[in-house]
Design a protein around this nucleic acid. Structure first.
Length: 419
RNA sequence: GUGGUCGUAGCUCAGCUGGUAGAGCACUCGGUUGUGGUCCGAGAUGUCGCGGGUUCGAGCCCCGUCGAUCACCCCA
C-alpha cells in the first residue's frame, strides 16, 4: 500500500508546536480587533477572473503560481493566492461600501501558491490580514502599519525592520515610468530580465544580482516623481510613525509583487530569517475596487505571514519560557477501576460548570497517572479512592509547590471558579 | 522554474577505507502497600525515505524518484 503523505510544500501545525502557531495567529488578530476591525470570513476559492483582474496578469503570482482548476460545472476556479481581492469582491457584492466609511475588516486563513517550497515559503500558508476601505487618509495608513507593528511588539519580536515608500498616484507613476523605461532601455540586459522589465520595470529595483543592482544604482526613483498631494500624504505618514515611535526606513527601491499597490506601501522584514524574510507587507490600492466593478474607492491593508512570524519568533527564542502556560486547572485520578465511573462523571460535571479539567484514562498505576497529571500542565491534581468517596473529602495538590489541602468534592467547582 | 546540500528509532544525531545498525532525549515498567517533576534499574521501537543497479556482501558506491533544506526566482 502506498504510504500517504502531505502534498509537497504544505505547512502543518500539530502539538506541541501548534500552540505557538495559535498564539501567534491570535496575537495578530487581537491587534486588529482592538483597533476596530471586524471579521470577514471568505471562501478559499474564487472565480479565476477575480485574481486575473485584481492581482494583475503581469504578476508572477497570477501568471505562474495559481492553483487553477475547472469545477464540475465547467467554471474556472482558483485557490486564493492572497486575501485583498476576495475582500474587495465581497464588499462590492454585498454593498458594504455604501455603509459608513472606512469599512475596517480583518481575516485569517490559508492561502495557496504553487511555488517551489523552502523554509518559510509554502504552497499552503497562513495569513492574517486587515483592510481599511473607503477613505484615503494618511491617518489610516498609519493605523494599518501600527496594527502590524503592535502585534509584532506584543509577540516580543525585536529583530525586524519596517521599510516604507510611496508609489504615488497614477499621474506620479506614469511620468516616472516613462523615464525609468528610457533608462532601462540603455542597459545591456539578458533576455529574461528585459522581459521582466517589460511587465513591470520597477521590479528591476529589487533584483538581487550584483550587476543589476549596479546598473540600477542611478535609475530614476519614483519617490522623486511624487505629486504634491502624494508627497504631503507620505510626509504625514512618516510624522505619525515618528510620533508613535515606530522605527522605519524609507526604501525607495522597495517593490511589491502585486500590481494593485499605490501610495503608501510597506514591508516588515525579519533579520533572523533566510531568503524568505518578509513577515508582512501591504499598502494602499487606489484603483482596485473600480477595476473589480465597484465604486472608485481607495483602501489600504496588509497581509501578515503567520508561518514566517512563527519562524521569526522561534529564531528569536521568545517561546523558551513565557508562553508554555498550564492549560488545565485540575487533573483527577481514580485510584482503582472501582472509582473510574465516579471520577469521569465528576470530570464531566466540572466541565459543565466551566472548569478546565482532565482525568487519567487507561489502567495506569498511580505513578504513571501522576506523570500524566504532570504532562497535562494542570495546576492541581487530586486522587480519588474509596476513602474519598466515603468521606466526601479529597486532597487537592498544588503541582508547583507540592502542597495539598482538603476540599469537599461537592465544593470543587466553587473552589476553582474563585481561583 | 534553475542550481547546490541532505534524508538512519517519536526527536536530535553517530555509524571508520562497503561486511548485514547504535547514543542521548522522549516513551513504558520497576525501585514493596495511595501521589508527578530529581536519581537509579530494566524494557520496547527501525522494511537506514522509496525503487532499481554494481558487489560474495550496501545505511555507506551508481542511477532514478519522493521529500526537506539553501541560494536564485518570488513573496507572506
Amino acid at each position: 500500500m502506498k504510504e500517504l503523505q502531505a502534498p509537497k510544500g504544505v505547512s502543518e501545525y500539530f502539538p506541541p508546536r501548534s500552540q505557538y502557531f495559535e498564539f501567534v495567529r491570535e496575537t495578530l488578530i487581537e491587534s486588529a480587533k482592538i483597533s476596530g476591525y471586524q471579521l470577514m470570513e471568505l471562501p478559499v476559492f474564487e472565480d479565476t477572473e477575480l485574481f486575473r483582474r485584481g492581482v494583475g496578469e503581469s504578476t508572477d503570482v497570477v501568471s505562474k503560481e495559481m492553483y487553477t482548476f475547472e469545477d464540475r460545472g465547467g467554471r474556472s476556479i482558483t485557490l486564493r493566492p492572497e486575501g485583498t481581492a476576495g475582500v474587495m469582491r465581497s464588499v462590492i457584492e454585498h454593498n458594504l461600501d455604501k455603509l459608513t466609511l472606512p469599512l475596517k475588516v480583518w481575516y485569517s486563513g490559508a492561502y495557496f501558491r504553487a511555488e517551489r517550497p523552502q523554509a518559510g515559503r509554502y504552497r499552503q500558508f497562513y495569513q492574517v490580514g486587515i483592510e481599511a476601505i473607503g477613505l484615503n487618509d494618511p491617518e489610516i495608513d498609519f493605523e494599518v502599519i501600527a496594527v502590524a507593528d503592535r502585534a509584532f511588539k506584543k509577540l516580543g519580536l525585536k529583530s525586524y525592520r519596517l521599510d516604507i515608500t510611496s508609489l504615488g498616484d497614477a499621474k506620479s507613476r506614469a511620468s516616472h515610468r516613462s523615464d525609468l523605461v528610457a533608462y532601462i532601455s540603455k542597459l545591456n540586459l539578458d533576455e529574461a530580465t528585459v522581459k521582466k522589465a517589460e511587465l513591470n520595470p520597477l521590479r528591476l529595483f529589487d533584483d538581487k544580482r550584483a550587476q543589476i543592482q549596479e546598473a540600477m544604482a542611478k535609475a530614476p526613483l519614483l519617490l522623486d516623481y511624487l505629486s504634491q498631494e502624494s508627497k504631503e500624504n507620505f510626509q504625514r505618514v512618516q510624522e505619525l510613525l515618528q510620533e508613535a515611535k515606530i522605527d522605519f526606513t524609507i526604501n525607495p527601491r522597495m517593490v511589491r509583487g502585486l500590481d494593485y499597490y499605490t501610495g503608501t506601501t510597506f514591508e516588515f522584514v525579519s533579520e533572523k530569517l533566510g531568503a524568505q524574510s518578509g513577515i508582512g507587507g501591504g499598502g494602499r490600492y487606489d484603483g482596485l475596487m473600480a477595476e473589480l466593478g465597484g465604486s472608485d474607492l481607495s483602501g489600504i491593508g496588509f497581509g501578515l505571514g503567520v508561518d514566517r512570524i512563527l519562524l521569526a519568533c522561534e529564531a528569536e527564542g521568545i517561546f523558551d519560557s513565557s508562553i508554555n502556560k498550564p492549560q488545565l486547572d485540575l487533573f483527577l485520578i481514580a485510584l482503582s477501576a472501582q472509582e473510574k465511573g465516579f471520577v469521569s462523571k465528576l470530570v464531566n460535571e466540572l466541565r459543565n460548570s466551566g472548569i478546565s479539567c482532565d482525568m487519567a484514562y487507561g489502567d495506569r498505576a498511580l505513578k504513571g497517572a501522576m506523570k500524566s497529571a504532570d504532562k497535562s500542565g494542570a495546576k492541581f491534581s487530586a486522587v480519588i479512592g474509596s476513602d474519598e468517596i466515603k468521606s466526601g473529602l479529597v486532597a487537592v495538590k498544588d503541582m508547583d509547590s507540592g502542597e495539598s489541602k482538603e476540599v469537599r468534592i461537592t465544593a470543587l467547582s466553587n473552589e476553582f471558579k474563585t481561583n
